[in-house]
Design a protein around this nucleic acid. Structure first.
Lengths: 161, 161
DNA sequence: TTGTCTGCAAACACTTTGCACTTTT
DNA sequence: AAAAGTGCAAAGTGTTTGCAGACAA
């Protein structure tokens, strides 16, 4: 590990807002730009946390079917990334954000993001070695976060995500 | 990344066979050493691939309930590790095997294992930086394997794990 | 107007649980 | 004989789908 200890997160330049990018995607696919879809993208874009379909449906008081369908489209459009934490599928922003990894606290379910250039090198080196064409990756380190270690955590199952 | 390119897998010295380790675990918990459980550990120990509950129940013609219960015990006993690949929960050996990561071919669902000392350093460094106590981690690199890239793959959805 | 979307409820796939019976200790 | 395990079927989860009415193009 040469570079060593830079795990900071930055942003990536993007030409369009997530909303605009989504509309572009929908048009390109002959899908319709509906109130429902716009409400969902806007709501999701407004906040930066990880979330799941259920939370979103609750906040928007939209039907789960519609939410699941919209999330699928947003993943396909490259706006969101989906990952599995335990049993849940959680979503996070993927448009305008660099690749990053997660520390997952198994006590309070918090997710802490970090990024590592060294990891990309590992990914490239091992892929080359196996003649594998890498497309994406997920690294989740599970353990106990600082708050939970010190008992400073408000509740053992706080914000869930 | 200093060490660079050693991604080979070895084995780890263990004192007991998986079967013996499991019996020890069961005794320690006041659980019973039943035919059913022994059959399951033996069957699982005999093969080295990744598998899911359904496959196992089918091979053993045991009830799913029993299989799920036994798998839970085996994970608790440290014999198996569970991971989510797409929608499926797959199990792999974790007793006597070193930490390793996976390349997941999204075309044929094959899993290729590798290990990396550098990754452990990243894990340690980032955990220290966040005062996080790491307990385990999962790295899955998704992409297309050599066979599928060259079209040499027998079937697009072969062995599933 | 036409084709797509939405919400609902039903269907699904996977996992867990309640219960009467069986096995281990 | 007591305590725990097993299989079955029923109940849960979380996600997807069929369909009739609603909406965008």
């Amino acid at each position: 590990m040469a570079a060593g200890t830079d795990f900071s997160l930055g942003t990536v330049e993007v030409a369009l807002t997530p909303q605009a990018r989504f509309e572009e995607y929908l048009r390109a696919r002959g899908k319709k730009i509906t109130q429902s879809r716009l409400r969902i993208v806007e709501h999701v874009s407004r906040q930066h946390d990880h979330f799941d379909a259920d939370k979103l449906a609750g906040e928007l008081k939209a039907s789960k079917a519609t939410v699941y369908r919209a999330l699928g489209d947003m993943v396909a459009a490259g706006l969101l990334r989906q990952m599995e934490i335990g049993r849940r599928k959680v979503y996070e922003h993927d448009y305008g954000y660099p690749q990053h990894e997660h520390l997952h606290c198994t006590a309070c379910d918090k997710l802490i993001e970090f990024s590592s250039a060294d990891l990309m090198q590992i990914r490239d080196a091992v892929s080359r070695q196996h003649q594998f064409r890498p497309q994406s990756h997920t690294l989740i380190i599970s353990g106990i976060c600082a708050d939970c270690r010190s008992g400073r955590s408000k509740s053992r199952h706080q914000d869930r995500v």
